[in-house]
Design a protein around this nucleic acid. Structure first.
Lengths: 342, 342
DNA sequence: GAATCATCCCAAAGCGCTTTGGATTGCAGG
DNA sequence: CCTGCAATCCAAAGCGCTTTGGGATGATTC
């Protein structure tokens, strides 16, 4: 069923039917009702491609997922982000187009997206500290919102980010208040902007209390259970083993917990752990109980808000182009006073 | 830059340029080279919508993600599946379109997808035992591949599935061989087809050894860490506490491990655990070490193969319409002989 | 030299929609 | 009675591509 058939069926012109369906005023209310009813009954919905061709808009948003050639990791956070964004898209009638791209030919992919015109805008995932995608997209004139920020990129661009620095500063301060001095940081890859900022927050908090950063207690790597386990195990084997861990993700923290148990220690009593918690639907840190003390910020909400921001941008609605979400500090069972002797 | 401009620039007709770019034979090789070069330099790529309109194909595959209205869970498996599928799509020049849909208006969404023509086919996720989507899609004439199966749906349709039944039968047998008799099953929601099949495998293995199924040792629920923890904790509190757990996902198994530790028991010695392992990139059960004994099957590979299958279907290439992947049984540190006294 | 045939290229139609620029009608106002 | 103006509706152009149905051109065959 297409417009032509529908209009013939109704003995109306395509123009009128189109206008009736799209809510234009120059059509009689009775006619409109008739049209809508017929469209409903005959199960008509307009062909996306034709509509897109005619309007110049595709009613789709692109998400370009960087897939590093080396480690083929999919960020576990991604599913929930997409779910959040998807809600907004559904409500606004947008489709979501995913493209996986090897980070080596990122540039050509973005260019292609632009000229092929299959999306009206893109969400940039996983920004690095210096990220060439930002100037590129600006140059291409394709609307975009960055989930995160790129510290080294100058100029204005729309972004939504968690205040990673303040979150990790607070978490570090909390551990310091509990008497911890040997605090390990199991960070994500510090080429990633968010990890860099967390590191800053951690370092600032230590510096403010005159505690030196011990490089042996720092890690910057992929956020997996196994790597969390290994790093924690190795550090706990040291003479100057940390009494507390600050960890970049729940998954990593689970590995840390395993390492602590393997050493015969108890989390929250012998060793404290604070993790960042993206509030993933399948990995709730609770509910109620709060297993880990955590800096929490819902990535799903971030997805929903980013999507809203991008749609506003595309529709040229004047709105804020920056959004900094503060993470909550949730006190759970994984932290306690620093053990006096060890 | 569009076709018209490009062809004017080259002093050729749109026809010739189009043919040169699409590899038709009736164009001189020199001309073709000239065209390709210019296209490259001028950064031309054809407008997707226009191309789609003209050809009737959209070069996009739809993934409809069911989002249950109650529990807003995103299956953690999803990210890796998408990554696998995405690889195939990239290689074949397809886009991937995600639509999140509340399961209440699933039907209308699929209908809309069909008439709007924004995709050439869809992958059906998370089939239930009786799943109306399958007859619907068949009726709509939209090519589709099901990731999993729907036991109650008759008729032929293309699917790719893990042999869940045999995997869980083997796992159960392995536990029985180790002397376990009180084996708990922490299953996914048994409205889901895969969970139902796992339950069958478990029950068959027990029956074959004359071990009765104890309903108190069965759970069918969402696969989260917290629910795994609670179920395991509650069961371990029983007089007839299980000596082994068969668990439906790594995430749940992590909760089980926590419950075991909380009881002061040791996994692999006091209590055995076998889990299904989807081989998620951020939650590797290893490498090498294999924390959990597990039935393993890469969901990423499943994604890649499903995508390939669907593309073959769309292109009407004759290929197998069913693919049953056998899971590996990986022996790890979480299983051991049943403790003689308890 | 005319007829035949490949080879290479082109004009124009068509995909299904939106939108421009009227055309038609009925009615109030002069 | 004519004009002006809303209120409705319509024909046709156009979005950027593919594809049909030829039209030149030059080489080959008889």
């Amino acid at each position: 069923m297409n417009l032509k058939q529908l209009s013939e069926h109704l003995n109306l012109s395509q123009t009128t039917v189109s206008r009736a369906l799209n809510g234009y005023p120059e059509v009689n209310e009775d006619t409109r009702k008739r049209v809508l009813k017929a469209a409903q009954e005959l199960n008509y919905s307009p062909n996306t491609r034709a509509k897109g061709l005619a309007t110049g808009r595709s009613m789709a948003i692109g998400h370009v997922i960087p897939v590093t050639s080396k480690h083929e990791m999919v960020n576990p956070v991604f599913g929930d982000f997409i779910a959040g964004a998807g809600e907004t898209y559904s409500a606004e009638g947008y489709d979501m187009v995913l493209t996986l791209v090897d980070d080596r030919d990122e540039e050509s992919v973005y260019r292609k997206i632009r000229t092929r015109g299959s999306v009206d805008g893109v969400i940039v995932h996983g920004p690095k500290m210096t990220d060439p995608r930002i100037p590129l997209l600006r140059q291409l004139g394709l609307p975009f919102v960055v989930h995160g920020r790129a510290t080294d990129e100058g100029g204005d661009y729309a972004w939504l980010d968690v205040n990673n620095k303040s979150a990790f500063r607070r978490a570090t301060n909390y551990l310091l208040d509990l008497g911890h001095r040997r605090i390990a940081l199991l960070n994500g890859l510090e080429t990633m902007d968010f990890a860099f900022r967390r590191r800053q927050g951690y370092a600032e908090a230590l510096a403010a209390r005159g505690v030196a950063v011990n490089p042996a207690l720092l890690r910057s790597e992929e956020m997996t259970e196994v790597l969390g386990y290994r790093s924690a195990r190795d550090m706990l084997d040291r003479d100057d083993a940390p009494t507390a861990f600050l960890v970049s993700s729940m998954i990593t923290a689970i590995g840390v917990r395993r390492a602590i148990h393997d050493k015969g220690l108890e989390m929250g009593r012998d060793v404290s752990v604070i993790t960042h918690d993206d509030d993933l639907s399948y990995l709730k840190n609770g509910p109620g109980e709060a297993i880990f003390t955590a800096t929490r910020s819902s990535v799903r909400e971030a997805g929903s808000l980013s999507a809203r921001m991008l749609i506003d941008l595309i529709r040229q609605r004047p709105t804020g182009r920056h959004q900094l979400l503060e993470a909550d500090l949730i006190i759970g069972g994984s932290t306690g006073p620093a053990p006096s002797t060890r």
